[in-house]
Design a protein around this nucleic acid. Structure first.
Lengths: 133, 133
DNA sequence: ACTTACGTTTACGTTAACGTAAACTTAAGA
DNA sequence: TCTTAAGTTTACGTTAACGTAAACGTAAGT
């Protein structure tokens, strides 16, 4: 038997409210099974939720996150389907690469700035020490 | 004389509307000079706008972007100020690192998946070729 | 059987980040 | 000087992504 999760199990684990998880279902991002009304989440559902939340952290809207995540469950039966899938993957990959570039330059900027601050700090401390003598 | 920009200059360059730029000013992210009512943006203002938009692309809210960007114009006169500045920089840096980790795993997932798709594609094509004989 | 905890649907409320429209001012070119 | 193209303020509208509350169902322990 595969392990399953209740809505509050996942809410706790990922630090969101059940309302949020239901909202993602309304938006077509999740589609858990039901046991007499109650939602039952499988490991696959859990993974999809994790992907949605990671997407959000990276600045994607729910719709954009959906577009990406749905690629991972796209049909691959025919050669044509595989071709268009690979094209779409490339397209999304380019977006991620753009974000990576943004992120790298943000980190570089910040590191260089912090370095200048540290230099200025040692200078200031040297001056204060000199003044104290 | 330093070069300056009108609001529509910047709007064109960064592909946003003037309304957006004014909104960022309302939120305290920009504070351009004025020449008799009209806003005049310096190179520094332009840079700040670029930082705001990069922040947005990386999933920050305007308030979060502001917190980060303001660090770059924080006072550095005293030793204490430099210390707290360096602490805050470290804090923000950690957030960027988290995003980087998210981004790397997103890219890794996608690359591995695309690789499997390519393998499956060559398999399928081999089958079709065999069936055609 | 009864409470308590968790789950469900429905529906209206809220916040951030602008869009849009109106009414007006200013600067620039013919 | 007249028009036209930008720019300005003010204010209401919109959309995404949930929050919140009500009213109700269900399952588990005592």
């Amino acid at each position: 038997m595969e392990r399953t999760y209740s809505i509050s199990d996942l809410a706790r684990e990922f630090d969101v409210t059940p309302r949020t998880i239901r909202h993602y279902e309304d938006e077509g991002l999740l589609s858990p099974a039901r046991s007499r009304q109650q939602r039952i989440y499988t490991a696959r559902d859990r993974t999809r939720l994790a992907l949605v939340l990671r997407g959000k952290r990276l600045g994607f809207s729910l719709a954009e996150a959906r577009e990406i995540i749905d690629l991972y469950s796209a049909p691959q039966g025919e050669v044509g389907q595989l071709h268009t899938l690979l094209e779409k993957l490339d397209e999304k990959r380019a977006i991620l690469e753009d974000k990576r570039r943004d992120l790298e330059s943000a980190l570089n900027n910040m590191d260089r700035y912090a370095e200048r601050c540290r230099q200025r700090l040692t200078e200031l401390q040297a001056m204060e020490k000199a003044a104290a003598e």
